[in-house]
């Protein structure tokens, strides 16, 4: 009878984060509910940098071709560049 209770499924605050980690990177993953709809919250635990991804962005990531993703992984693509 969950549909008959006063406040079914009300999520307060972010879900408790889980860590996806390896020897190379550690990212905390949770679903954030501070906005008007849920977002995925990704936190790079080594730098504290946070990125939110909405549902349409996530779907886009799912559809990224492997080749495109490999290009993004090139360390000089975005994060470590001389011209930055």
């Amino acid at each position: 009878m969950s549909d008959e209770q006063d406040r079914p499924g009300v999520v307060v605050g972010p879900s408790s984060p889980e860590v996806v980690g390896s020897e190379f990177a550690e990212v905390a993953v949770s679903v954030d509910h501070e906005g008007n709809g849920p977002r995925l919250k990704l936190e790079d635990l080594r730098t504290g940098r946070v990125r939110y991804l909405d549902a349409l962005e996530l779907e886009t990531v799912v559809w990224l071709p492997d080749g495109h993703l490999r290009q993004l992984l090139d360390p000089s693509a975005h994060r470590w560049r001389e011209d930055k």
Partner: peptide, 9 residues
């Protein structure tokens, strides 16, 4: 169509 939500696009 929704009254509210979160989406950058």
């Amino acid at each position: 169509e929704d009254e509210r939500g979160n989406s950058n696009s």
